[in-house]
Design a protein around this nucleic acid. Sequence first.
DNA 1: ACCGCTCTTGACCATCTGATCAAGAATTAA
DNA 2: TTAATTCTTGATCAGATGGTCAAGAGCGGT
Lengths: 207, 207
Amino acid sequence: MAQAAPAHRKTRIQAQNEELILKAALEVFSTYGFRGSTVDQIAANCGLSKPNLLYYFRRKEDIYVAVLEHTLQDWLEPLRKLDAAGEPLDEITRYIRTKIRLSRDNPKASRLFANEILQGAGAIGAYLRGPLKELVDEKAAIIQGWIEAGRLAPVDPHHLIFAIWSTTQHYADFDAQVHAVMGTPPDLMDKAEDTLIALLSEGLRPR
Amino acid sequence: MAQAAPAHRKTRIQAQNEELILKAALEVFSTYGFRGSTVDQIAANCGLSKPNLLYYFRRKEDIYVAVLEHTLQDWLEPLRKLDAAGEPLDEITRYIRTKIRLSRDNPKASRLFANEILQGAGAIGAYLRGPLKELVDEKAAIIQGWIEAGRLAPVDPHHLIFAIWSTTQHYADFDAQVHAVMGTPPDLMDKAEDTLIALLSEGLRPR
DNA sequence: ACCGCTCTTGACCATCTGATCAAGAATTAA
DNA sequence: TTAATTCTTGATCAGATGGTCAAGAGCGGT
């Protein structure tokens, strides 16, 4: 519960400003992490005064949690779509593709989570141990099923999922490093996509 | 240049305390990043008073840079060892193995860099664009050579290196997430190692 | 024992930061 | 138009934070 106004329906201004705030907060928190970010920064970033911002979200932490929750759903959607009825290699290829495009199109969300998890996941630890673990276990079981049916090379499904997460999110989270090494060729992300899909789908081909 | 004492040789006490400080600073900076860490925290962490700590390193940033430099060398050593004269798959397998063990045995160093790069690499951007890029380009050329000789599947060498970095460092940087999902089985890192090596070396087998 | 240098610290400072509050401005529903 | 409600902000506060300083304690070479 982050709103200042309690039982009522949301005002036009309320909805509008909360959206402004969440957008600015994503910008700031994703860049500096929770402790490294200041309420002033967020306020400046959305053109509101600090007291006004704190009228909508009473505490800095409330803003943070709100941004996390607001972003979390989109972030896990692609994994939910992994379909036991599909062709294994197609499903996983599609997952990798979706993930890396998400990384390209919404790097701030990726960095927000990266900061949060890197610094101990204090705010979303419970979520990781609950709904996330559940989802991952469910999808890992599907992959395990594919493996046992001989439709995929035998690799540990959980670690496979980690491998997909890490390789795809790398391009958002370590953006600075990637660009330091590669410069900014226009086809960088396309090449990344091709390479990862080739590498992993070949590594997963049943044998 | 981070020392307070300039032209002289290091005192016993100096060497001893600087080591204490760097150790404590690694602990703190790797957990909270530069902006999220405080000098007091570091001082408390090594049992020195804040003014005393600032006698050895005049500014917070000096400590930070010192820790980064102190850690950077070890971190890149494994890639340097990638040998053009070796058997390609063996070389890469060994690199992956070394990297993931480094991640397991020195997760704080990994998280220190992760925080630094995630937040824009302000302190080591120049290093990334210089020596790091040079090293990566050199090793990518070796891999490219192997590919052209038909000894490795054709994947982009730079993106391959990123894939190895991201998958291996994932276990240090996103430790909190990994353990939230997997619990803490004793063989977690062994399984991770096996999976990554199987996945990538199979994906790289010439065809 | 002496002296110069290194080391340590309590007190202190300016600034930043999260948060509060009262009072006024704007909006909305009647 | 009016009155209740929502929204906005300048002023302010307490605590945290990076950093300084002067003075004293400790150490090493002679």
